[in-house]
């Protein structure tokens, strides 16, 4: 195995250039180094101007998502050695506006997330003194998978529908809506239904399935969306035959 590897890193400095360019750096390639370690080496030792986000380096903060050789990846969980002999192309996540180098603007997701009301909605709350709402492990299993989303945005980068139609609400936001819809403590499904059943909601999804394939936390947003489509269809049929909630 080569002890060094080349990184071709996308650069975009809005004050200097109108288009992204690539800079090439050679970094050490020990067995336990991930792409992010390579970038840190560049920043610390070669070129302090390289800009990217990172924090936990253990796959839970969701900061370090980038395109690695064209695939959306958490760079803290992508070993350099797996790409030997290289070179490795590192680019900002696809389908997002690029702010600088490897940093994208995820404001669009943050605004969409609010629209699906990702919190527990209840008509009436029982007082704290009455203790917890009972929820069996089986009931928790209904939504647990969808609660594992770390908002890393890899699914948005993988989704061609989002790339083509930026109004599409997108995989993670829908999965999080489902996370609450399927929670036995929640009563907000009807409110979320209005947003989810719009054209830019679930029906925008044409089931490419890439979101699920790239998800580092096995959230399966594609499954969440297809599941909700079925729910929405059944609701529509019910509403047709039984108007006014018979």
């Amino acid at each position: 195995m080569a002890d060094r590897i080349k990184l071709q890193v996308a650069r975009y400095r809005p004050e200097r250039e109108a288009e992204a360019t690539f800079d090439e750096y050679e970094v050490p390639c020990p067995k336990d180094w991930v792409v992010l370690d390579g970038l840190n080496h560049v920043k610390d030792r070669i070129d302090g101007t390289l800009a990217y986000r990172w924090s936990c380096r253990m796959g839970v903060c969701g900061s370090c998502g980038m395109m690695v050789n064209g695939e959306p990846k958490l760079t803290c969980a992508t070993f350099l050695a797996d790409y030997a002999p290289g070179p490795i192309r590192v680019e900002p996540l696809r389908n997002f506006p690029v702010v600088r180098d490897l940093i994208v603007d995820i404001g669009d997701f943050m605004r969409k997330l609010v629209t699906v009301r990702p919190w527990i909605v209840r008509e009436e709350e029982k007082p704290l003194s009455a203790g917890e709402y009972l929820q069996t492990p089986e009931q928790m299993d209904d939504y647990k998978q969808y609660s594992m989303c770390i908002n890393c945005m890899l699914c948005y980068a993988a989704c061609p529908v989002y790339g083509l139609d930026p109004l599409f609400i997108g995989p993670a936001a829908i999965a999080l809506a489902q996370r609450y819809n399927l929670d036995s403590r929640d009563e907000g499904a009807a409110e979320r239904h209005r947003v989810l059943s719009e054209h830019e909601g679930i029906w925008g999804c044409t089931f490419v399935g890439e979101c699920t394939r790239v998800c580092p936390k096995h959230v399966d947003p594609a499954g969440a969306i297809q599941r909700y489509k079925l729910t929405a269809a059944v609701e529509t049929v019910k509403a047709f035959f039984m108007p006014r909630g018979a």
Binding site: P14, E15, V99, D105, G163, V208, G209, E210
Partner: peptide
Amino acid sequence: RQRVLPPRVSTLWWLGKGTYFAF
């Protein structure tokens, strides 16, 4: 805001990957 680089999708994006092509 600083000028951001807008996302672009090439017309042949679906040739880029087996799963996209299958889709």
